[in-house]
Amino acid sequence: MGNKNNLYKPENYYVRVIKYAILQIIAAILIILWLMPLYALFVGALKSNIAAASTPALLPPSKPSGEAYYFVWHGFGGIYGLIGLEYPLIREILIDVPIAALATLLGAMGAYFFYMIMDRHYIWSTIGFAIISLATYLPVETTTVPLIQIVTSLHLYNTYYGVIIAYLMFYIPMAALLMSIFMPSIPKYLLEAAKIDGASDWRVFWKVMMPLLVPGFLSTFIFTFLQIWDNFFIPILLISNPQEMLLSVAVRQYAGGYAIIYNRSFAAGVVGSIVPLVIFIFLGRYFIRGLAALGGGAKGV
């Protein structure tokens, strides 16, 4: 270890400073590149129609204007046939929050069962795990024809119940998978001890499991919520009545076309993603933990 002193020689110090500066500069450039679409979104949405028609999207507006937001919020259906985003946003929140909570809770119960039978019934829990993984990762579009046949035969086409059934079909298994990945952090002897003391599964789940698993539960809930929010295919497949549109489909009306310049598209985009963005800014670590759970909670790495 005679060369340890070399680390603190002056030229070595400068080389390290320069290397560190290069590292920070590259990182900064990448961060700017990655944030550029978000910047364009917020800046562009604040432009007036005239400013949007005459300036490029990446320049900030000389005078901020709420014109575009006013337009997409109310929609002016009579003139342009566009549905405003006010009601789609409210509907989206009213459907997504309870469904995400329900899916997370029911999925957690399923995960609890698989976790408990793991040791005794290895084959069955493997099959269960395979099925919930398949449901998590399978493209939603594969269910197109059967789903619409199930939903129409139950007379639920163009109702939110059809959409909710479809969401539960995908997101209860997904929540069960994520919860299965968070659950092994709780030592099994705690659960076994409670069961030996005569507690029922229901009590063990609520009194032992859930209090210890609050962060995992919250991660699963937030991840599921954002997945449901992002879902575009189910609403476009199962709802054709413009008066019942959900947010992701309603936002798409503003993708371009008659009377749409980018300020209105971007304002629609802000309305479509403001809830996910706020959640990501304040509770981002829970979302990231949920994302990591998709890959085994990064436990295998």
Partner: peptide
């Protein structure tokens, strides 16, 4: 920085599509 690389996964993909449609104009 990690959050910045991940945020596109959190926002709605219909929004991403709207942004890119104009950015690629």
């Amino acid at each position: 920085y990690l959050s910045v690389f991940i945020y596109p996964l959190a926002i709605a993909s219909s929004t991403s599509a709207l942004i890119w449609e104009w950015l690629l104009n």
